[in-house]
């Protein structure tokens, strides 16, 4: 990371998380906080990918399983599981469950390869050393359409 200390104007910071075997990056400007796994209260009749709600310092925050949203296997909560609390201007706070939080990286625009595709939750792939990081399109995740 040391080589990235001098930031370029168009570089962004990402939090790198693990879901399954893949590494994903979440734009740090969307992130309010990261909390450990806690009791999630199930909400009946909610969309399937919503695990329920949690009490975050006195506020009710809905929690989404990004795995279910991406049609992956259901989450298995472990010691490394975390809930990343995203804060969105319009709709308020939303928690997403990830298997593990790894690090914070800074990617400049020339390290990011844009990609787009219908029904995809990824809007780019970042290269960080030897590793590839899929960058989440936060708006696509929040978007309430079920992607078939």
């Amino acid at each position: 990371m040391a080589d990235l200390d001098i930031m370029e104007n168009d570089s962004k910071q990402y939090i790198v998380v693990k879901i399954g075997n893949e590494q994903y990056g979440i734009d740090i400007s969307y992130i309010d906080t990261i909390v450990r796994m806690q009791k999630i209260t199930r909400v009946p009749k909610a969309q399937r990918h919503f695990k329920g709600v949690i009490n975050l310092r006195g506020e009710i925050v809905p929690v989404m399983s990004i795995r279910l949203k991406m049609k992956l296997e259901d989450d298995e909560f472990t010691n490394t599981s975390r809930i990343i609390i995203l804060k969105l201007e319009e709709k308020g706070m939303l928690g997403v469950i990830v298997d593990e939080v790894k690090e914070v990286v800074t990617l400049s625009s020339n390290e990011v390869e844009k990609s787009s595709g219908k029904g995809s939750f990824i809007n780019g792939v970042g290269k960080h050393g030897e590793e590839l990081i899929s960058l989440f399109d936060i708006n696509a995740i929040v978007e309430e359409k079920e992607n078939a």
């Binding site: 009791k39 209260t41 909610a46 919503f50 709600v53 009490n55 009710i60 989404m64 939303l94 309430e144």
Partner: peptide, 21 residues
């Protein structure tokens, strides 16, 4: 919140004394 759509059976949530929802 605005994310969860639940046919209105649940009108809201509350936080209990032990922090549970």
């Amino acid at each position: 919140g605005k994310y969860i759509d639940n046919n209105k059976i649940i009108s809201g949530a509350t936080i209990l004394g032990d922090g549970e929802v």
